[in-house]
Design a binder for these strands. Structure first.
Ligand SMILES: NC(=O)c1ccc[n+]([C@@H]2O[C@H](COP(=O)([O-])OP(=O)(O)OC[C@H]3O[C@@H](n4cnc5c(N)ncnc54)[C@H](O)[C@@H]3O)[C@@H](O)[C@H]2O)c1
Ligand SMILES: NC(=O)c1ccc[n+]([C@@H]2O[C@H](COP(=O)([O-])OP(=O)(O)OC[C@H]3O[C@@H](n4cnc5c(N)ncnc54)[C@H](O)[C@@H]3O)[C@@H](O)[C@H]2O)c1
Lengths: 208, 208
DNA sequence: ATTATATCGATATATAGGTATCGATATTGA
DNA sequence: TCAATATCGATACCTATATATCGATATAAT
């Protein structure tokens, strides 16, 4: 079982969404061609991506949807639930907490931490906010593997180090800061600035 | 002036952040080596990216910071202000509205639209919410070029078509939906699921 | 039964983007 | 003054990924 290239991994959630929509409509078979048209990819690319799951398609029919969904979810590790904590219960943190879509990926945010005394003890989107002092103990006790980091950029490095020391294995980092941690911790950056830069640049080129 | 590859464009905001931080500290010159170390890139990559701006470096010193900032901002189109509207004043929309960081990119959200009667007339993060009925007229009158789309996925296609018809030129789409529009409109997708998929997959690989 | 068709899957090719190498150049310090 | 050094910039190279081609196969229609 060889490892799936990252660009394919990034497309998998798009396939999943389409597949689940098809299944809702009662469709049982789907071809690479169909997926490609819906998503604006080339059909060759889609076929190759699907082949990476190890499943075999059927000429003229394509792939059986249910096993395909299962195989993609398994490739992503989305068949098992992933527990996470969220650090930084501000604007963005609250939005993420209130987002029901994450359940689709098996992501469950089970606790929230913040340093602001005014927030500690209150609930954000129904989830109680704990003080930072309880962070290390909580992670040590629960062995929670993942943290969603939504603190201000200035605090990001410091908070990330706390998380690493406490034993966190993956950080989904929404703060615009490069985290310098040991490579035991997997850091995934979400950078809206990069996305906006791409949009700006494409718009600019379009104008000329 | 040849066009800058997209991967470089995506790195530009990272350079900008570091450069502005250096300048705050009083530094006037910066080398590709220094930037590379701070950001975890190879210095060759950084030097190539900077060369794309057209600026020339100085042996042993590197690049003069101020012109470099200017050149990168110009490459991105961030030297001029970009006005935008936001459609969908929900959890995520509010968070984005309340985010002061966008000003750094020249992005100004000047109006908000929503279909929920309970929200219309109220203010979200200090910005008044207008009904969807006023959307077309507003865009036609102001010639606003960009829209931030934060409506539920089910409404995304319909809303995007409204935006296109009204004359919007770029859409920053946060809804997990593929928008099918004419290629006159530039659509930039922000897909947290893809990002989370990458994190999941990297964590999974790390385990084994 | 036979032919047309849509799809798969394997192989080959092309392209973009990242990385390595090396000479040139300005600055620093001996 | 001269050697050592840090950097740039051009060229060459390499790797990952996307795209093209084509035979094989199962289904559906004639
Ligand atoms: N809001 C957005 O739309 C948006 C967009 C892109 C990026 N971001 C980034 O996401 C992060 C959060 O943004 P936000 O708008 O939610 O900010 P915010 O100020 O609303 O929230 C930050 C939260 O973190 C808490 N906090 C601060 N320091 C802390 C620490 N050391 N330990 C624990 N908690 C701490 C604060 O009390 C607050 O609740 C920032 O890094 C921001 O740059 C936000
Ligand atoms: N909240 C998150 O953290 C998050 C994360 C990833 C993606 N998203 C996506 O962002 C979008 C918004 O998410 P959210 O959590 O803010 O949802 P939300 O339900 O809180 O907000 C959606 C808003 O859009 C408005 N709306 C609904 N239909 C509309 C229409 N046809 N025209 C105009 N306005 C309309 C609603 O009144 C509401 O105010 C969704 O597509 C969601 O999948 C959200």
């Amino acid at each position: 079982m060889k490892s799936i290239p990252l660009p394919a991994i990034r497309r998998y959630p798009l396939y999943l969404r389409r597949l689940k929509a098809y299944r809702m409509g009662g469709t049982l078979w789907v071809s690479a061609t169909m997926l490609a048209e819906d998503l604006g990819f080339s059909s060759i690319l889609v076929r190759k991506d699907l082949a990476l799951t190890g499943l075999e398609g059927r000429p003229k029919y394509g792939f059986s949807i249910d096993p395909l969904i299962g195989a993609i979810e398994e490739s992503l590790g989305w068949n098992n639930r992933t527990d996470a904590i969220l650090v930084g219960a501000g604007n963005l943190g609250s939005a993420l907490l209130g987002y029901s879509g994450f359940a689709q990926y098996g992501l469950e945010i089970s606790a929230v931490f913040d340093s602001d005394p005014a927030k500690i003890g209150t609930k954000v989107q129904g989830v109680p906010v704990f003080p930072m002092e309880k962070l290390t103990d909580f992670i040590g006790r629960t062995h929670i593997p993942m943290a969603v980091l939504t603190v201000p950029a200035e605090s990001a490095q410091r908070t990330a180090e706390q998380l690493e020391d406490a034993g966190i294995r993956g950080i989904w980092n929404f703060a615009p800061a490069k985290l310098k941690l040991s490579d035991k911790v997997v850091v995934q950056r979400v950078d809206l600035a990069s996305s906006f830069a791409e949009l700006s640049s494409r718009l600019k080129k379009d104008q000329t």
